[in-house]
Design a protein around this nucleic acid. Structure first.
Lengths: 139, 139
DNA sequence: CTAGAGCTTGACGTCGATGTCAGAGTCAAG
DNA sequence: CTTGACTCTGACATCGACGTCAAGCTCTAG
């Protein structure tokens, strides 16, 4: 399929898909005309890329993941899988931390919404915002 | 307290604290010398600001939250609390969605780490990454 | 009094994943 | 053949929360 169809099926813009290729995340075939030709597997790959990008992974890290090889500029001679795996583990930990932060923030918003819900809030004396922070409720 | 102490106690840099003030999120008193003077309440406020910033809220939205008033440029005459609350509710929903995305991404990383863990992965034939995505495991 | 740490404002730099635009080639339908 | 939709390769623009540097003022310990 061509870039437009892949864009529609993945939610990525053509511009984004070309960017992914530039970063080494995709390697579409080329027609004689120069048009990119993508396969079905690329649909899954792009979904994965976007999931990880949305999670805050950089395209460089995703590229390492996809190739299992060191980055161009680095001079490490051998395979870098241990480092790569360690890096991914760190990313995993970062994501967990981020989930925790988001949960905290959501709790804070809940407090504010709850405090403002009863009546109109402009004229009413509002308790200090940000007065106390709650831990994420676990059940 | 002065800006350096507040910075230490909140983890924000002095530059960040000045930025928050510029965005209308803080209104420290000033000494005759021009030095900013912060109170204890500002410590909590800054923690709240940083929590919400980390959650992806813009400083403009946080500013609306803190003031309960419309933005400078807007011409809405009256209180905008209903809109503000609606906006915060949308932010809450966005955060929930983001938590979901992060959970998905973490699951994807888990799959990859699990697949790569057994042995060295460079030379071994690797199954397609991004082949299947799992729903977040709930328990 | 003096040095050095801390504070001031102002302005420009950053970073990364895109948006957007320009100029030109390609493809399918009528 | 023609038209319009699609694609190509650059290259510059964006956005937001800061980092960083400069030039100068302030505070405090000794």
């Amino acid at each position: 399929m061509r870039i437009g169809e892949l864009a529609q099926r993945t939610g990525a813009s053509p511009r984004a898909l070309r960017y992914y290729e530039q970063q080494g995340l995709l390697r579409p075939a080329r027609r004689p005309s120069g048009y990119r030709e993508y396969g079905e597997a690329d649909v899954r790959t792009v979904h994965g890329i976007r999931t990880l990008l949305a999670a805050g992974l950089s395209s460089a890290v995703i590229g390492e993941m996809l190739s299992g090889l060191p980055l161009p500029g680095e001079r490490r001679p051998g395979p870098t899988c241990p480092e790569l795996l360690a890096g991914l583990a760190r990313e995993r930990a970062r994501i967990s931390g981020e989930i925790h932060e988001l949960t905290m923030a959501r709790g804070l918003l809940d407090d504010i919404l709850a405090a403002a819900a009863p009546g109109e809030a402009i004229t009413a004396p509002r308790p200090e915002p940000f007065s106390a922070r709650r831990a994420p409720r676990r059940r």
